[in-house]
Design a protein around this nucleic acid. Structure first.
Lengths: 129, 129
DNA sequence: TTATATTGACTACAAACGTAATCATTAGCT
DNA sequence: AGCTAATGATTACGTTTGTAGTCAATATAA
């Protein structure tokens, strides 16, 4: 039986997720650091990034540790955990909880290339040991 | 190259999705029909269902055809298309667009049971013909 | 024919979200 | 010492979402 993981953080919105992604990639960062990366991409102002960071702190998805007169922000949840949560949510909502159905769907819809198929096959072989 | 499908409807919210699910299962239905199924499950009032239905019409996700003094609502988008959109969105957001990465993730996280693995393997074999 | 039940249209309203501006503080430069 | 730039806190404001209530029209039952 696998451990059922209940999320300790509130649901993260789309915009908030973009900020998380930066933190996961860069690791601990200041608001300015995050903006440097994300503001050009999304055409956001620094103010927007700050708002999102504080909302993420409120939601328990990141922590803020004082560093001089600013904060450094770090993810509380690992990217892999988040990915897991979201994947599971999708499988539950759309595939009746059956992950294999998702895979079947991807395959049928040709979302999987031939290379993907080969790769997956190899993967399965390994997992079955 | 697979046809890239751009969604003709606006983004559907969580609550709206629940209504879609009923329409997909029951097919064309009146507001009362939908409520009969969904209201007990979600503890909604009929008014809520009506609001969601009209928002879905606005968003172009369903159509309303007059039937006497009421409407019958039908999905415009097929469930499979919706599922495809959502799956693709997840793969793009979380797995850099690589569906195989999603499968790998599911497998590693043991979201896939042994039975699933066998099932998928059979599926792959078939797809490779 | 009159009361009632049903239906969509319209309105409501708080919470979440996207996107920021303003402000007070303070660190650093001149 | 005074000015400037950076920073978090606070406030703002339009939109979307969740969840309904109300109302006018009309079909139906008595």
């Amino acid at each position: 039986m696998s451990v059922s993981k209940s999320p300790i953080h509130e649901r993260i919105s789309e915009a908030e997720y973009a900020v998380m992604e930066v933190l996961w990639q860069r690791g601990t960062s200041s608001a300015a650091d995050v903006c440097e990366i994300i503001c050009p991409q999304r055409e956001w102002s620094l103010a927007t990034v700050k708002t999102l960071l504080s909302r993420l702190v409120q939601k328990g998805a990141i922590t803020a540790s004082p560093d001089g007169r600013r904060y450094l922000y770090s993810p509380v949840i690992a990217r892999s955990d988040y990915v897991e949560e979201e994947s599971q949510r999708l499988v539950d909502r759309l595939f009746g909880g059956k992950a294999a159905s998702l895979v079947a769907h991807l395959a049928e819809r040709e979302a999987l290339s031939d290379a993907d198929l080969v790769e997956i096959e190899a993967l399965l072989k390994e997992l079955k040991q």
